[in-house]
């Protein structure tokens, strides 16, 4: 069984975000890069499948050199090999371009299963894995909450409004996973050490025969803004009844949780 896991290196969302002067870029002082949390679940699921039937797990990522550390983590957790399509300008790619890059790599690997997180917590794009599956022409299922291998097929649950549905998946297939599908393991020291010595294969867009036209974004960012960073610390005043009314009108106007 050959399993590919799509992973992405993202800044820890606990970082402090600022907006650059041109209002178009996010600035993060001294960022810590982590594997996007949903990808951790995807990787864990892949390793679990591998452990149950034997096979190999290849992690594939598109990013700049910051992604290397996260790929090492993936190797320490249990991936067998890693491929990074390195591009210093990776951040400017949209889901459309990224999916083409990843699909081009995966085509050369012909995996049976592809796992990915349901979204990356930086751009929250929610589209790259599904696009990859469509480009590769394989079936896919999103936000899977249970995955069980049954011989040559698999059974998976996914949430639908008001419940969940169970489906049968024939391979090759791609699944994006939801939080809580498993508990990602903590890497062991020997594996961390081994991962340090493993080679991470690097590829470029040229090697994948992708032209600038193929990956040119069809979007431009006009501006970005910080809704707010700090808590408002607003103590409501007046009678209790008035305070409650004040609160509900704020919630209504700001469309909070309604």
């Amino acid at each position: 069984m050959k399993i590919v896991v799509l992973i992405k290196s993202v800044p820890d969302t606990a970082s402090i975000f600022k907006v650059a002067e041109d209002n178009k870029f996010v600035v993060i002082g001294n960022p810590k890069f982590i594997m996007s949390p949903y990808d951790e679940y995807a990787l864990e699921e892949a390793i679990k499948v591998k452990e149950s039937v034997s096979g190999e797990v290849v992690v594939v990522s598109f990013g700049d050199e910051n992604a290397l550390e996260v790929m090492r983590t993936a190797l320490a957790v249990g991936a067998d090999s890693a491929i990074l399509v390195e591009n210093s300008d990776a951040d400017s790619f949209t889901g459309k371009g990224v999916s083409k890059v990843l699909a081009a790599v995966i085509k050369t690997l012909s995996p049976n299963i592809i796992f990915a997180g349901k979204q990356a917590v930086d751009d929250d794009g929610c589209q790259v894995p599904e696009r990859v599956a469509e480009i590769l022409g394989i079936s896919h299922a999103s936000a899977v909450t249970r995955f069980e291998l049954q011989g040559l097929t698999a059974e998976a649950d996914r949430e639908v409004e008001g419940g969940y549905c169970t489906m049968e998946i024939t391979f090759p297939a791609l699944c994006t996973v939801e939080k809580g599908i498993n508990t990602p393991r903590y890497p062991t020291l020997p594996n961390i050490m081994k991962a340090k010595r493993k080679e991470i294969r690097k590829m470029t867009l040229e090697e994948l025969n992708l032209s600038a036209d193929d990956v040119r974004p069809g979007l431009t960012v006009n501006s970005i803004s910080l809704p707010r960073q700090e808590r408002l610390l607003k103590k409501l005043e007046g009678e209790i009844g008035a305070q409650v009314k004040q609160l509900t009108s704020i919630l209504r106007e700001e469309k909070i949780g309604l």
């Binding site: 800044p11 969302t13 975000f17 907006v19 996010v26 917590v121 930086d122 751009d123 929250d124 979007l219 431009t220 960012v221 006009n222 501006s223 970005i224 803004s225 910080l226 809704p227 960073q229």
Partner: peptide
């Protein structure tokens, strides 16, 4: 919203 809602991006 991006970055778990910490930033709002305006895109064309």
């Amino acid at each position: 919203p991006i970055f778990a809602g910490k930033i709002i991006s305006d895109i064309s």
